[in-house]
Amino acid sequence: MPGSPPDGLPRYRLLTGKDDASFCQRVSDALALGYSLYGSPAATFNGEHVVVAQAILWPEHD
């Protein structure tokens, strides 16, 4: 995982979405690419379903 994230992705990303298996898969895919979780997840209720957010960060290498 040298250098920058693949495919021109940014170093910092905030993944958001409905709290379901699809969101969990998106986070898992980002971790498999080499991103690390950054901070704690957040959750809210929008009147229909729970919406979650997780920040991820591409690690810096010397």
Results as ranks from 00 to 15, higher is better:
residue 31 L to D: 10
residue 20 D to S: 07
residue 32 A to Q: 15
residue 22 S to N: 06
residue 51 V to W: 09
residue 52 V to W: 03
residue 35 Y to K: 11
residue 30 A to K: 14
residue 36 S to Y: 01
residue 27 V to T: 06
residue 18 K to C: 05
residue 20 D to T: 06
residue 30 A to F: 07
residue 33 L to I: 13
residue 56 I to N: 02
residue 43 A to T: 14
residue 57 L to K: 15
residue 44 T to S: 06
residue 32 A to H: 14
residue 47 G to K: 02
residue 56 I to L: 08
residue 45 F to Y: 15
residue 47 G to E: 00
residue 17 G to I: 10
residue 49 H to S: 08
residue 45 F to T: 12
residue 40 S to R: 06
residue 52 V to P: 01
residue 39 G to F: 00
residue 34 G to K: 11
residue 39 G to T: 13
residue 37 L to F: 01
residue 21 A to G: 07
residue 31 L to M: 12
residue 48 E to R: 07
residue 21 A to Y: 05
residue 21 A to S: 10
residue 45 F to K: 13
residue 27 V to C: 02
residue 53 A to H: 05
residue 24 C to D: 02
residue 33 L to E: 09
residue 18 K to M: 00
residue 49 H to R: 09
residue 16 T to H: 00
residue 56 I to V: 14
residue 23 F to L: 13
residue 20 D to P: 06
residue 50 V to E: 11
residue 33 L to F: 09
residue 28 S to R: 14
residue 26 R to K: 14
residue 29 D to M: 14
residue 55 A to I: 03
residue 31 L to N: 11
residue 57 L to Y: 07
residue 52 V to H: 02
residue 37 L to E: 01
residue 37 L to V: 12
residue 28 S to N: 15
residue 28 S to M: 15
residue 53 A to Y: 04
residue 47 G to H: 04
residue 43 A to H: 09
residue 23 F to T: 14
residue 23 F to Y: 09
residue 44 T to Y: 00
residue 41 P to F: 09
residue 21 A to L: 04
residue 37 L to P: 00
residue 18 K to T: 08
residue 35 Y to C: 05
residue 50 V to Q: 12
residue 22 S to Y: 05
residue 29 D to G: 07
residue 18 K to S: 01
residue 41 P to M: 07
residue 22 S to H: 10
residue 41 P to Y: 10
residue 42 A to G: 00
residue 56 I to M: 03
residue 35 Y to F: 11
residue 22 S to W: 10
residue 50 V to T: 15
residue 22 S to G: 10
residue 57 L to E: 11
residue 46 N to E: 03
residue 42 A to E: 05
residue 28 S to A: 15
residue 45 F to C: 09
residue 39 G to E: 04
residue 26 R to T: 14
residue 22 S to R: 06
residue 34 G to D: 06
residue 28 S to I: 15
residue 50 V to H: 11
residue 41 P to I: 04
residue 24 C to G: 10
residue 43 A to F: 11
residue 23 F to E: 02
residue 35 Y to H: 12
residue 31 L to V: 14
residue 54 Q to Y: 03
residue 24 C to M: 08
residue 53 A to S: 08
residue 32 A to I: 14
residue 39 G to C: 05
residue 19 D to F: 07
residue 43 A to M: 13
residue 28 S to H: 15
residue 48 E to P: 00
residue 32 A to M: 15
residue 23 F to H: 06
residue 30 A to W: 02
residue 28 S to L: 14
residue 45 F to Q: 12
residue 30 A to I: 03
residue 22 S to L: 10
